[in-house]
Write a protein that binds this DNA or RNA. Sequence first.
RNA 1: UGAGAUAUAGUGCAGUGGUAACACGACAGAUUCUGGUUCUGUAAACCCAAGUUCGAUUCUUGGUAUCUCAACCA
Length: 562
Amino acid sequence: MVKINTNEAEARNKNFIEDIIEKDLAEGKCKSIVTRFPPEPNGYLHIGHAKSICLNFGLAKKYGGETNLRFDDTNPVKEDTEYVDSIKEDIKWLGFQWARERYSSDYFDQLYEWAEQLIKNGKAYVDDQTQEQIHLSRGTVQKPGILSPYRERSVDENLKLFREMKEGKYADGEKVLRAKIDMANPNMLLRDPLMYRIIHTNHHRTGDKWCIYPMYDFAHGESDSIENITHSICTLEFDVHRPLYDWFIKNLGIFPSHQYEFARLNITYTMMSKRKLLELVKSKTVEGWDDPRMPTICGLRRRGYTPESIRMFAEKVGVAKRDNLIDLKLLEWCLREDLNKCSNRYLVVQDPVKLIIDNWEEGKIDHCSAPKNQEKPEEGNRDIEIGKELYIERADFMEEPPKKFFRLKPGGEVRLKYSYIIKCENIIKDNEGHITEIHCTYDPTTKPGEGPWRKVKGTIHWASCTHCKEIKLRNYDRLFLKDDMGNIPDGKDYQDYLNPDSLVEIKAYAEPALLEDKSGISVQFERSGYYIRDDKATAAESSMAGEQIQVFNKATGMRSSY
RNA sequence: UGAGAUAUAGUGCAGUGGUAACACGACAGAUUCUGGUUCUGUAAACCCAAGUUCGAUUCUUGGUAUCUCAACCA
């Protein structure tokens, strides 16, 4: 019953692309759909790409179609096989499988042939102008451009020149092939756009076979067409390219792929510019593309994000055409939501203050029993030892508490999680008024499972001084300060915006079981957040997603990252 | 300043010629050995103006705001 309601809700919230697809299918415009994910292999995939991946693969899955992975490798100076490999790995990790692996460079021969066809039809010409001249003659958004002096060359001359370009007779920048469209069109993209340029550079796949390379606009739609892509889905900034996309397909008379645009993902405090992320990597500001503070897929993976949580996030942010800014907390919520179902939880104290149980018998050690995993009782219990001296979280005690403070306060009672109820008797401070010891008494009749249950308002976590292990955590705080978008203002150095708390090391005290945890998945701290298994570090060096996903920071007055 | 896209609770995202759903967030309550999870409830939105209409958030027109476009990048 509940399930049916959920499905109805999902059906109601169909996005506009799903509407288009359903209409196309119903009208028989296509028998089944083919989508594609077309990254340029010039960087690592980030969370913004994840939205596109989930959309493209998700749509195909929902409507029984297929998705191709196509590398848009038309610019050899920026691209590299390292990026190809990482992209494939990240997509697989996200849980998707492409139907075909393709490259724009697979189509260079076909594209060249089509370019000649346009020349023969008088729709393209070779231009000898310099880059500067072409730029100036393009006009502005308000003023029409000026016709190139080479625009009316004969078909034969254009053909001859273009073939010579291909044969390497000219240097980089000496000549280009342009489509002959309309130098006065208000859409700048239609003012005789470049189709081919000369680049004498080794290509990561075709080597030295080519010295002319097609531009994005002359490769993308054509590649879609070759692959019979029915729905070519890209981000909004390509919206102005659509008339050109359609122009080439129409003038070539090839498979009519159609382009649809959606708004790209923006997340607060998160910088999603590939160029700037590359800068951080090159300058060694971060450990690499997979630094846990990076918004890359591999960075999120190292940070402890699960594929499921990222897919859930992509689903939640929706698909539309208006600009958006998603709160980073939503991404964290998705992780909590997923982790809540499976993570192991441990008692850990990050900012300790000593607590002494005055009426605890000297040398006595008691054993507490706690479930290994709350959601999986079948895994049994673990044993935690407790003694006279403990550490508790400094924030769990307040000398002058506000009215709704449920944790330890002078004269107040709280339960030590999985253990006895204690009462605060007095506190000891140093000369500066800093609390150094909290003295309590315990009620021996309140051990869980022994005697009647007594309820107190607060439960706090703890670590036994003589039994706990010291662990080091790395606080993956956000990388940048100030700018919501994580962007570095133009002309400014990113160094000025680096967060000094980012990646600081924190000492903490944990129950020994934490170090023995071999589950390999993220675990949740009792009370203080999540403990994220860093797949590049040993357990003791593992990291925590810090305060960014702190569960209980609202009422505690703990420092917040946002 | 030319062209295009967009405009619905705090944030996202649906929907309708009869004033609006869902999710996250907020707030309140219940359960609970986590201020978590779970459950219940509350507050909270149709950019503006004119027109058409019995009736406009929806249609028309005109504004306004935001984003995108003048790379031999994608």
